[in-house]
Design a protein around this nucleic acid. Structure first.
Lengths: 224, 224
DNA sequence: CGCCATTTTGAAGGTTTTCAATGTCAGTGG
DNA sequence: CCACTGACATTGAAAACCTTCAAAATGGCG
């Protein structure tokens, strides 16, 4: 699969608009926005942007999933979040992005030029408020990750990871269980600051304890 | 030492105003603010507010130091930050605070009623922008902590902690080194998700490696 | 000066990492 | 259609590191 672009978007028909700042825009603004956005389809494992790139766009996730990561001092990557449809990334970092993003499954993104976005931010207070709330939410998620990492027990971290994904699913209208894990064991391990082996062993133990039931390699019934 | 209150503040004479949103206020607003703020002096280890308390005030730190922590699912506390003079805490959580704060040394705080603060937020765009930047900065600090915690090596975490404090000192106009550590080994350990013993051993090793030179129990020359 | 809290040091035990090998699954080509 | 391949996941065993529990040392403060 190759990257495909779509122009002539009609934002009024957007399937995820209700979840985004766009829902706060006036009809006039929305019509205007339709002319500046691009829809992009990316295959799995596509880099969208890198730390240090000049900020040019805001990206909304229409479908698929994106991982966000930083590089640590030693050069290793550290995943700081997984983005679901309705999530966005790309702003509040000053002049350049301060993280990397990569699709982990085939994904469709909506790309808005930063200048247009800034305009709405300046002129439309509800948009600004919405955006502000999004940052606060990111902060909460970061602190949840801190709480997860502060447990030095692989099993507890993995349990928390499944709970986190379960909650994410609920907030995106999916069922609480079973949980679908599109990310690789490597990505889970990275997010939890463990090795893939430790994640694998923890999952095995949880299955033995009947706390997880594997429906497939990436789907689990939760009994936590 | 007991808590002492001061009224009749003159915000124009505030020693930390330049570091705070107040520097974005008009003279008229500042005069008005002077009538609503209170200055409070607290001894070491005083709880200022708890998770779940209704949001009533914004607190600015004039001098001293405050630790911010959350309670984990198991009831343990998890420190998520240390606040220096010029830092503030108390908003962007909805109706209630979602963390605990406690002084770790004798501290003087400036307490602003949330209603007054919200008014400036609504009416004065630079104040809002300033405040927004503060949240973004908190997010960056949270992600730094994630990067620290993702290293499963006590020595590396402790090194990063010293570097972090060193940077904090610089941004508050203090020298890069020596570093002064007002927090207890317990607090350091908690922030780093280690035990006090591990922190102590890591510091000993770093001293042996000449990477740290202890000038006193809480002051270290850095050679990192 | 002496007490008490905090910090440091010690030894044993437990968990994770590391390195290696095996197992599993999807996609490819014969 | 099936065997093969390569990426990913799981399992195994040894080593490394942190935690735990205990004891000694240090430093602040009355």
């Amino acid at each position: 699969m190759k990257k495909t672009c779509t122009y002539n978007i009609d934002c009024n028909k957007c399937e995820i608009r209700s979840k985004l700042f766009c829902s706060k825009l006036e009809q006039v603004e929305l019509k205007e926005l339709s002319n500046t956005v691009t829809h992009l389809e990316f295959p799995k494992d596509t880099n969208i942007l890198s730390e240090g790139d000049p900020i040019t766009h805001i990206y909304n996730i229409i479908y698929g999933m994106v991982k966000v990561y930083q590089l640590k001092a030693n050069g290793d990557e550290q995943i700081i979040g997984f983005l679901y449809p309705g999530d966005f990334f790309g702003s509040h970092e000053g002049g350049t992005y301060d993280f990397y993003t990569q699709t982990i499954v085939p994904s469709k993104l909506c790309k808005i030029p930063i200048n247009d976005f800034e305009k709405y931010l300046q002129n439309n207070r509800p948009v600004y408020d919405d955006f502000y709330d999004a940052v606060v939410n990111e902060l909460k998620l970061a602190r949840i990750q801190i709480n997860i990492l502060s447990q030095n027990n692989a099993e507890d971290r993995v349990i928390d990871f499944f709970k986190l994904i379960s909650k994410k699913q609920v907030s995106y209208g999916m069922p609480q269980s079973p949980v679908t894990i599109p990310m690789s064991r490597y990505d889970i391990a990275n997010y939890l600051a463990l090795t893939t082996e430790s994640v694998s062993r923890a999952i095995t133990k949880l299955k033995n304890k009947q706390m997880l039931k594997a429906k497939s390699l990436n789907t689990f019934e939760l009994c936590l």
